[in-house]
Amino acid sequence: MRWDPAQYAAFSDHRARPFFDLVGRVDHPAPRRIVDLGCGPGELTVVLARRWPEAEVLGIDSSPEMVERARSLEDTPANLAFVPGDVRDWTPEAGTDVVVSNAVLQWVPDHQTLLARWAAALEERACLAFQVPGNFSAPSHVLMRRLAESERWCQQLGSILRHDDVVSPPEDYHRLLRGAGLEADIWETTYQHLLTGADPVLEWVRGTGLRPILAALPAADAAEFERTYAAMLSAAYPPEPDGGTLLAFRRIFAVGTRSSTGISPAA
């Protein structure tokens, strides 16, 4: 399944805000090594490298297209590098003080096991910061699943989409981090994004959640699915009287920190 960096970047201002809200709660005075897991096109990893210029900063992404786009960025700091890699195979090396995962783990089945492994490997004062979308019960996703499971599409798409158990509730992430001996800072936010243009919610999900369906269908079928889905979205997300379309988007945030005083992991 290929990523389209240009489509993903179409709403870059909205997609970037949770990243800044997340890393704004990371409090490490002088990290030695920072890893951005699922760095995408790299612009936000550049922010990390500029915030901590003395740190070695590494962006990792499984998409060759995203890594290529990241490596093509101009005027990147000298302390920054991008490499291809699968987050499922990654483990913190010694000296890794900040680990960031921004809107990635929802794509990884059983990511809770990964989080527990990463958290257990953190050294003193190191931080693990991640955010995941919590909108799988929103109309955009419910309608997508309903259409994919309909009689017209179920044979081609019946098992493509996961359901509302893709991510855990906030309290489960809190227990996971505390169980690994970390101090846990967990919160959630619902952003009200005002989108513009034709079929704006379709354009939004086309860059993320709709990708597995588009990848699974021939071009003509994908166009038919999109037309039907676009009509459903237009009914669910009508334009505002003063223009634009409101998209409510819930996000779950977590920052776990290995305290210098130490918290005993749960038995």
Rank of each mutant, 00 (worst) to 15 (best):
M1L: 14
R2Y: 01
A6I: 12
S12T: 10
H14D: 12
A16Q: 09
A16T: 05
P18S: 04
P18R: 00
L22D: 12
L22E: 10
G24R: 10
G24I: 05
H28C: 11
P29D: 09
R32E: 15
I34K: 05
G40C: 00
L44C: 05
L44I: 02
A49P: 12
R51C: 01
R51D: 00
A55K: 01
G59N: 12
S63E: 12
E65A: 15
E65N: 11
M66Q: 15
L73E: 09
E74Y: 02
A81W: 03
W90R: 04
P92R: 04
G95S: 05
D97Y: 01
V99Q: 10
S101K: 01
S101G: 10
V104W: 14
W107V: 12
V108T: 06
D110T: 08
D110H: 12
H111N: 00
A116L: 11
R117K: 13
A121C: 03
L128P: 13
L128H: 10
A129L: 05
A129Q: 06
V132L: 00
N135F: 07
H141G: 10
H141F: 13
L147Q: 14
A148Y: 05
E151L: 07
W153I: 12
C154F: 06
C154S: 14
I160S: 13
H163I: 00
D165H: 14
S168F: 02
Y173N: 01
H174I: 00
G181K: 01
E183V: 11
A184N: 00
D185G: 04
I186K: 00
T189A: 05
L194V: 08
L195M: 06
T196K: 11
T196R: 08
G197H: 07
A198I: 09
W204H: 08
V205T: 15
G207S: 15
T208F: 07
R211C: 05
L214I: 04
L214R: 08
L217M: 07
P218A: 08
A223R: 13
A223T: 03
A231R: 14
A236T: 07
P238D: 03
D242G: 02
G243Q: 06
G244T: 03
G244P: 11
F253W: 07
G256C: 01
S259N: 08
S259M: 06
T261C: 02
T261D: 11
T261N: 08
